[in-house]
Each structure stands twice: as C-alpha cells, then as structure tokens.
Design a protein around this nucleic acid. Structure first.
Lengths: 174, 174
DNA sequence: ACCAGAAAGTCTCATATGAGACCATCTCGA
DNA sequence: TCGAGATGGTCTCATATGAGACTTTCTGGT
C-alpha cells in the first residue's frame, strides 16, 4: 500500500465526511489495526517524501540513507537495509548516487573488505538539514491530537511491537 | 520507505542483536514514533504483499481494491484512492486489470455517469479468500506480544490518530 | 588449511509506479 | 442557461523498484 494523495487535485475534502463517516470506512477492512497503521502512516510519510524527492532530487533509499547516517556514521549498506526495509539493490544504487553527488563518502572496512563504511560529507549534512525539519514538524502534527500521556503510551506500545518483530518477521509461511 | 527483506537471502539473523541492541538502532533516528510505525508495519505488510504479488499475480492496487470491495461492494475508484493512499492512475490500472481477469465487474453509476461502481465476481471473492487468511494471521502474530488491554489501547490510539488525519494531512507546507 | 556456504555489494532486466496531461461529465454561481 | 471550474477516470512517459544472478570476501566445520 502506498500513500495518499489529495484527491490528486488539491483538496482533501473527500476525507471529511460526505457519504459515510470516516470511521466506518477506516474500520471496515478486516485488518483493523494494520490498516489503520498504514492509513495514518501513509498520510504522514508520503507527502513529505514525495516533496523531498521532487525538490531535492533524491530517491527514497537516498533520503533514508542520509537519515541513518545522521544517526550514526560509519554504518554499512546492509545495516541500512536491515532497519529501513529497503532492498539492498536499491540501497546500493542510492549509495552510489549519493557518493556521486558528494553527499557521502565510503571507506572500506579494515576488518572486512566486503563492507564499506559510510560517512556524510558537509554537503550531505547540509542537505539533510534542509528536509528533516519538515518531517519532524509533520510527525508533531500527526501526534498533536494525543495527550502527552497517550503519546507516551503509544510510543511504549510501538517499542514493544518493534522489539518483538524478529519473533515473527521471519515466518514466511504467514 | 519500503519494506523489509530477510537480508535478501533467507535469514533474519541480523535483526537479533549482534553489534548493537536493536532498540538502539530503532530509536536512533529523530523521527522516533513515525520511524517505529514504519518499521513494524513494513515487516508486517511487505512480505505478505510481495508473496501475494508473486503467487497470485496481482499488483498492490489490485490487492487493495479487492480488500475494499470485500468490505463494501459498489465502491468507486476514487473512494478506494481516498482511503488506500494509492494514486488514482494506479487504482485505475488495477481496476482495468481486475476486470480483464473477471475478478470484478463495473457498472456505471446511474446518477453520475463519470463514476463506476465496482462489484466482486465469484472468482474475485475466491481469490480474495486465498490471500486474506495469511494477512490476518500475520497481523495476529504482529500483535501477539501485546496483552489484550494493550492491544485495545493501541487500537484506540490509532483510531484517534486516524480520525484526526484530515486536520493535518492537507498541510502541504509541512 | 581447506572447502562449502554465508554475506556484502553491484548489476541487469522486467515491471509497477509517480507525475501530470487529457477527456468527459457534473456542479454551481451569475 | 451558460460557462468556469471541480471531479471521475484513463493514458503516456520517465523512472524507481523488485527479483534474482553474479563477484568477491569472509566464516565455520572438518
């Protein structure tokens, strides 16, 4: 499932109500919780990411790579894959592109010459600084309807869910 | 951000621990809550969807369209866009493909000849029945680590977030 | 010390997707 | 009643993506 549009023309009117209360539609599918997570997340993430893609000429793997590098320099491509969920082919392409644009640089890992550690350049840091505020602000807006206590609880539950991902993510039968 | 791989070879070992506790990485980016939502959701959604894509030869818009139709017949393309987050061009293509495969049928809306209402065929229902159990089961697995009370609370918070989406989703400045 | 298999990263190919133009129909105000 | 603009849906084009083959390097068991 991919994100959401403003009806593709500029309004979000359709969301407000009209023929059915929103809740009726949202809760309608069988996958209640998963669907809602996707619904909220899509509206948060997609418009911002698309904007970054268009205005700064970055692909998603590139955007995500810079986010990870900002968090910790020296990270490798496969670590980014592991935690971003992008396919390694795409992260690889993104890294090549980022290096070409001088936004990151690579250094062979001394202990394992297959790996290459990644580092931001000043230009990379500058570009990152141009798009991250909007993402932060939009996250804030998304959560604004929750009380502080609710937000804390929501985060706690998400942490718990995230910590348990390894227990079921590998179950391909599902 | 798109989903997650099993390191691309078949194991999920990298997730378990190794160089850093998972939590350190997960919580590392600035966008704590948004990132975690994406992380969990990706591991839930992507493997299942990819499997459906490959085994049943459906695209994502097609999968989603069948899910919506199962919930309510007679829905139109733009309604599916509105709540699924897919672009209308893609839903349109999906609908055309689904009709070609005889999984749905279309009927012009009498009151507005631009719109066309969509209905599942028996074959569509049968195909839907083939993939939905795995999605349900995987959602169950994802939530299994929560107590019943936590799950209820999580759902309540998601509902609240979803209900407030219209208040900020349109803010393009963000 | 060796070899089978795993892991990191790159590449190719086919395809699904995003952007946006386009057409037809509808709506609403003057 | 007319015309401007909104809306539903389709199409085209360029591009990002998924699948998976491939190379090189590392690892663990014998």
């Amino acid at each position: 499932m991919r994100p959401s549009r403003k009806s593709s023309n500029g309004t979000t009117k359709g969301l407000q109500a009209e023929r059915e209360p929103l809740a009726a539609v949202i809760g309608g599918t069988e996958l209640q919780i998963a669907y809602r997570m996707g619904y909220v997340l899509n509206f948060y993430r997609e418009p911002s990411f698309r904007r970054i893609e268009m205005e700064l000429g970055l692909t998603r793997p590139e955007i995500v790579t810079l986010i990870f590098l900002n968090f910790r320099e020296g990270v490798t491509a496969s670590e980014i894959c592991e935690f971003s969920g992008h396919l390694k082919a795409n992260i690889s392409r993104g890294i090549i592109a980022l290096e070409k644009k001088k936004l990151i640089r690579r250094a062979a890992d001394k202990t394992d010459s297959r790996r290459q550690q990644l580092f931001m350049t000043a230009a990379g840091r500058a570009l990152y600084a141009r798009y991250i505020p909007a993402l932060r602000e939009r996250e804030r807006a998304m959560l604004a309807c929750l009380t502080r206590a609710e937000r804390n609880e929501f985060e706690r539950l998400l942490d718990k869910l995230a910590a348990h991902v390894p227990q079921w993510a590998a179950l391909d039968e599902l």
